[in-house]
Nucleic acid binder design. Sequence first.
DNA 1: ATAAGGTGTTCCAGTATATGGAATTCGGTT
DNA 2: AACCGAATTCCATATACTGGAACACCTTAT
Lengths: 265, 265
Amino acid sequence: MARRNGVESGASNTGTLGKAIAVLELVALSDRPMRFTEILERAGQPRGTLHRQLSHLLEEGLLDLNADHCYEPGLRLLKLASSAWARSDLRRLAAPHLQTLHELTGETVHLGVLKGAEIIYLDKVESRQAVRMTSQIGKASPAYCTGVGKAALSVLPEPHLADLLRDAPFRCFTAQTITSLGALRVELEAIRTAGYAFDREEHEPGIRCVAAAIADPALSFVGGVSVTGPAYRVGEEVLQAWAPLVQRVAATITEEIAARLGPSR
Amino acid sequence: MARRNGVESGASNTGTLGKAIAVLELVALSDRPMRFTEILERAGQPRGTLHRQLSHLLEEGLLDLNADHCYEPGLRLLKLASSAWARSDLRRLAAPHLQTLHELTGETVHLGVLKGAEIIYLDKVESRQAVRMTSQIGKASPAYCTGVGKAALSVLPEPHLADLLRDAPFRCFTAQTITSLGALRVELEAIRTAGYAFDREEHEPGIRCVAAAIADPALSFVGGVSVTGPAYRVGEEVLQAWAPLVQRVAATITEEIAARLGPSR
DNA sequence: ATAAGGTGTTCCAGTATATGGAATTCGGTT
DNA sequence: AACCGAATTCCATATACTGGAACACCTTAT
């Protein structure tokens, strides 16, 4: 259930493992297969060292080497992650509520949690099979420009929030993207008073959503739920109309988390 | 595209990383959260060492520690795996064919690849949202008792196959599960001549499927596609009727793999 | 209250293991 | 055939992993 989302320290003191995982992530999160030299440039490590690290990652099945000497994410990652996903208590607990939310709105519903300054999507309920299913489960998006992300940020205690925002860059995805710390803080204040957050095409053009935060009592994790739809179908009034609904579902999930954590503690 | 699925050597010479990943897998693949002592017993490593390994895994976000001192899979796994999944060339190439197969049969369609003696599911197309989506993407199942698995095994060259089956245990899931090496070899021979494989409730009671193998020309990976359904809906005749269809789709995918690999080579 | 037992964490000398620069092999190109 | 860049292997050095044991902590029983 509870998840630590402590502010990540820049330099890792995890020794060998940390460096190996950094390489793994470099390769896995790249959008194209990478050759040795390309990795070498970005990893900032000596040839010999990097080569051994890659060899080990290959042997462990975390990376694969295709016929063109290109490194790609390996199958073992999928195997490990599928278990992680299946076991997430938050996801299991939230699932029926997400389903309800989807049935009431007819649009796509997301569940995400904050990790660092990013939102990682844990689950998704959508109607049409047409778009690829599971498209973004596990995907990470910046918190400052997504509904779930802003909702989650809005419930963080100030010092923690400041830490998170200190070195978070504001990349501009659309004309509506919030691009300054000041604007974000104003927005977060508005979200705090309203109790829900909107994303009006701030991350992807033509995509809007309403979101509300969820968290456990000790704030050992924060996240949110959202209803998302295309702008042509989801007008301002619709967005406003759904807000209380989303807020109530989020509150319900939060209560259930507290209930499960309460008795045991 | 191509993926190595070499026979895994028992003892890993991947040093620190190997041991850390072993611990990670131990925790991630367990079905319940584990406390320190429990991990200690199964990991077979000294207290101090294990503690440091766990600390590093925590710091890297690969594991999380919940309020009850229980270790759980971390979010970073999801993030890494989602990229792995999204980028899989095989999956992308096969997707439209899986969709076709689903539309023609109305039942659930799976895509899986062989990794060691296990099948790892890469994709799935199903109709009803009722069952949880993505339920088993990334999940690993033994090859010898699943349709996709048997199909994949049937196209492996003999020495490689022998290696794989040498130490693969035959766990009995249902009354129909194949439980001896002899029986499996007879079955594989039948599959080789037929060109497709059946799973008649060998893995899960009440679940049947037809599968056919896919592979790249150099056998750098083998896998398969399958159509799965409940026994009450999918009778013997239906299974037989679908076989040629599944076989043809598998053949098409295999050809497209060869085509993409051919020109570049 | 106090003690006992189990569980999780920290410490430190010894040493196995990762490091990284340089030399070597490989593979494709002119 | 000879060249060039890329990938791989090698090896002395220094780092960071090892693992036993001592320490802190929380829970339960007396």
